[in-house]
């Protein structure tokens, strides 16, 4: 009796698989967009900063499209798993978009030896960016980054700088050090929160978090100072903090968040999508939500975004190789 039941059920399960092949038709490029539910793949866990950005985009887009826009969290591998899944998708129909961030697109493919590069994507548009800064506690003797560099030159290897080892911040700070000849040691942390904890607890001397906003509370209270910003222009909330460019270092950078589709998406559809999503990204509703999330609305159109990503991918590749961090 048992065996009969087992055999029967296995048969029911296996039979349809025989018909499974070939039943799927290629999706034809539609002129109308969007006509159905759209999925935004967020490669980070629910509740994080990128996830909140994704949900803000979804809520604005849903109101405009009139069809559901759903955020699906595909976490893991430091955001590479979700990114790779979109990159290698062959079913680019415009209804699955990646909320991509700089680390997964331009840095990690080099350090982790992944199967994708920016060529696997077509960019729809850049949504926003953040201000990256260098922080330390108020009792440190340095007032600008130049002070620190001179100190670090006089005492090579004495100071610990906390940042994710081999991550974006590590690479950028290394570039700064290379320019000046300063030597420092990396104190590895996983995220901005840990970074702030290390700085406040006196474990590390200097911190390079992904966004200086992580220390906003301490900055307001005068317990933490920002030595310099990586961005092009000064931040509105920190009018007295110079950018690296102003201090004479040829280094500027702002980590961005962009919308991307797999390269298998037909070009005509991509053009249509760029237009549709531009309206979403440039809408005042989204700008308001992003500002609340401490993100700077920073729209770039699809073609420009694509160029930026490819250029940064190449640049970082060279730095990472010279630092000896590249995967074989």
């Amino acid at each position: 009796m048992k065996k009969v039941i087992v055999a029967l059920f296995l048969l029911v399960l296996v039979l349809p698989c025989a018909f499974a092949q070939g039943s799927k038709e290629a999706v034809s490029a539609e002129v109308e967009y969007p006509t159905g539910p759209v999925t935004l793949i967020c490669p980070w866990a629910a509740g994080g900063s990128t996830d909140i950005t994704a949900r803000a985009i979804a809520s604005v887009a849903e109101a405009r499209f009139g069809s559901p826009v759903v955020v699906v969290n595909r976490e893991g591998g430091g955001s590479t798993i979700g990114t790779q899944e979109v990159a290698l998708s062959t079913k680019g129909d415009g209804y699955t978009l990646l909320v991509g961030t700089i680390n997964a697109l331009a840095v990690l493919p080099h350090t982790m030896g992944l199967a994708y590069s920016p060529a696997n994507f077509k960019a729809i548009g850049q949504v926003c960016s953040r201000d990256m800064g260098i922080i330390c506690t108020a009792d440190k003797p340095w007032n600008t980054i130049t002070d620190f560099i001179q100190d670090a030159k006089a005492n090579p290897g004495k100071y610990l700088v906390s940042c994710p080892q081999g991550g974006l911040q590590n690479i950028l700070f290394q570039r700064l050090a290379d320019m000046t000849g300063a030597q420092f040691r990396v104190y590895p942390v996983n995220n901005d929160t840990e970074n702030l904890t290390a700085v406040l607890g006196g474990v590390s001397d200097l911190g390079v978090p992904g966004s200086y906003d992580v220390a906003a509370g301490q900055i307001a209270a005068g317990q933490v100072k920002v030595l310099a910003l990586f961005s092009d222009t000064r931040a509105a909330s920190l009018p007295n903090v110079p950018t690296l460019k102003e201090l004479g270092f040829d280094l500027s950078f702002a980590p961005w968040t962009s919308l991307l589709v797999p390269a298998s998406t037909p070009d005509s559809l991509v053009e249509k999508m760029r237009g549709v999503w531009r309206e979403v990204i440039q809408s005042p509703e989204l700008a308001a939500l992003l500002a609340k999330n401490k993100q700077k609305p920073d729209y770039l159109d699809g073609a420009e975004t694509q160029l930026t990503i490819e250029k940064q991918f190449k640049d970082f590749g060279e730095t990472i190789k010279s630092m000896g961090l590249a995967a074989k």
């Binding site: 900063s49 509370g217 609340k292 999330n293």
Partner: peptide
Amino acid sequence: TLGIPGDTITAIMYGALVLQGITPGPLV
């Protein structure tokens, strides 16, 4: 008090507070 979320759940709450325009930290 520090604006440092200890685990994933409080990290989400931190995000929610920031969205409300409140910055957790010494001055809160």
